[in-house]
Design a protein around this nucleic acid. Structure first.
Lengths: 124, 124
DNA sequence: AATACGATTTGATATGATTACAAATTTACA
DNA sequence: TGTAAATTTGTAATCATATCAAATCGTATT
């Protein structure tokens, strides 16, 4: 949990394992899977299904959206302060259905990768 | 593609395979994977990463959101006619990043499952 | 109609994330 | 300190998806 709260990179299980394996030599992936599942069930962390390859986790459970770069894989936070409409999505109702969770995901190419792309095309 | 357009159930590869295997006896899952990937790349279909287990596909590429029931797995369409705010997310910008796709996913328990749940608890 | 060749489809196999589960370890408390 | 419960671990199973070479198909040409 401390790792999640101090690393806002929306890590995967793999990334958490690689990062913590040094200080906690006995740590197993199973424990990470179990613990994250518990966090998500209890509402202490958010699970991001933004990518099909694997799941990302977020220790910030405040209302916010995400932007994922298809090229470099980086996931950026988008907070309501920058995009006020996000507040409106958080409280969406859908008929008589019981909405428990709202995820707003933007997908595209991030600014940095856009610049690299331009450089590449200029080189040709 | 015809299957996707006539079955608004947001099927998985598995479901498409099961459905089409009867009429197209030689159809392989690889072909379904390849074809759907192509559709998504070309913008003819949408890929839904709403669930962590597997990917769903949608032949409707008009602006709309989805609600997934955690209990029965059904994915419901939410069109702007019912929820006007959905029109707004189609044009979301995020700084100088290049937004190519926006997904709005609601997760919860659908009306039908809510009713069944109540019945169950009354029986106890 | 037969041939040739590129494009598509297939199926067997590989991969990689996630889960299941029993054994090992740790913790809490008597 | 001893013991039972809770947690953690590592191995093996599972399952969706990717890889890739071989098989098949479509089409144009003779």
């Amino acid at each position: 949990m401390k790792y999640l709260l101090t690393h806002k990179t929306h890590p995967t299980v793999e990334e958490i394992y690689d990062a913590l394996h040094d200080e906690i030599a006995t740590l197993s992936k199973t424990t990470i899977y179990n613990t994250l599942k518990l966090f998500v069930e209890k509402g202490a962390a958010a699970q991001l299904n933004i990518e099909d390859k694997c799941v990302h986790f977020d220790g910030d459970i405040s209302t916010h959206a995400h932007f994922m770069c298809q090229r470099c894989g980086t996931i950026y936070d988008i907070f309501p302060s920058k995009m006020p409409i996000i507040e409106d999505f958080a409280s969406l109702q859908f008929g008589a259905h019981n909405v428990q969770n709202v995820q707003l995901n933007l997908i595209g190419i991030c600014e940095r990768c856009m610049k690299n792309k331009n450089k590449e095309s200029k080189q040709k």
